[in-house]
C-alpha cells in the first residue's frame, strides 16, 4: 500500500515538474507577449495542481491526517491567475495595439481598455498614454 502510494506521488511530482518546465520553456520560445501569456496561465496550472495532489496524498498516507491547505492554494490560484492574466493582456493592448487594429466589439461598443479619453472622467487615464 505504502509502496503504491509512493509510486503515485513520485509520478505526480515528475509529471507536474515536466509541465512546469514546458510552461517556462514556452515563455522563452513563443514570439509575442500575448502568446507568451498562454504558457504560464495553463501549463503551470497543471504543474502546480500535480504537486498539490501529491502533497495531499502524502499527508493522507504518511502524515496520518488529511491536509486541506492544498485545496486553499488551488482556490486562491484559480482566483488570482485569470485576474493577473487579464491585467497583463489589458496593459499590453492599451500600450501596444491601436484601437483600430483590434477586432471591434459587438453592438457598436468599444473595448473598456480603449475608452475614449474625452468622455471618461478625469482619472489620469489620458496621462497613461503619454510616452
Amino acid at each position: 500500500m505504502e509502496t503504491a502510494a509512493e509510486i503515485v506521488i513520485a509520478l505526480l511530482l515528475v509529471v507536474s515538474g515536466v509541465f512546469g518546465l514546458v510552461g517556462s520553456y514556452g515563455l522563452i520560445k513563443l514570439s509575442d507577449p500575448m502568446m507568451r501569456l498562454h504558457a504560464p496561465t495553463k501549463a503551470t496550472t497543471l504543474g502546480v495542481g500535480g504537486v498539490l495532489i501529491a502533497s495531499m496524498l502524502y499527508f493522507l498516507v504518511f502524515g496520518g491526517a488529511p491536509s486541506f491547505h492544498e485545496l486553499m492554494i488551488t482556490l486562491f490560484l484559480f482566483l488570482t491567475a485569470p485576474v493577473s492574466a487579464h491585467f497583463v493582456a489589458k496593459a499590453f493592448l492599451h500600450r501596444n495595439i491601436r484601437r483600430e487594429e483590434v477586432v471591434p466589439a459587438r453592438h457598436g461598443s468599444v473595448w473598456a481598455g480603449y475608452s475614449p479619453a474625452e468622455d471618461a472622467p478625469a482619472t489620469g487615464e489620458a496621462d497613461d498614454r503619454v510616452e
Binding site: 500575448m34 498562454h38 495553463k42 487579464h86 493582456a89 489589458k90 477586432v103 461598443s109 473595448w111 473598456a112
Partner: peptide, 25 residues
C-alpha cells in the same frame, strides 16, 4: 472570463464598455 483564461488556448483580454462582448486571445 476566468473560465476562458484557464481553458484551452484562450485568454480573455478585455470586455466591452456596454458589457455585451468579450475580447479573447
Amino acid at each position: 472570463a476566468g473560465t476562458i483564461t484557464m481553458t484551452p488556448g484562450t485568454v480573455s483580454s478585455d470586455v466591452a464598455r456596454d458589457g455585451r462582448s468579450l475580447l479573447v486571445h
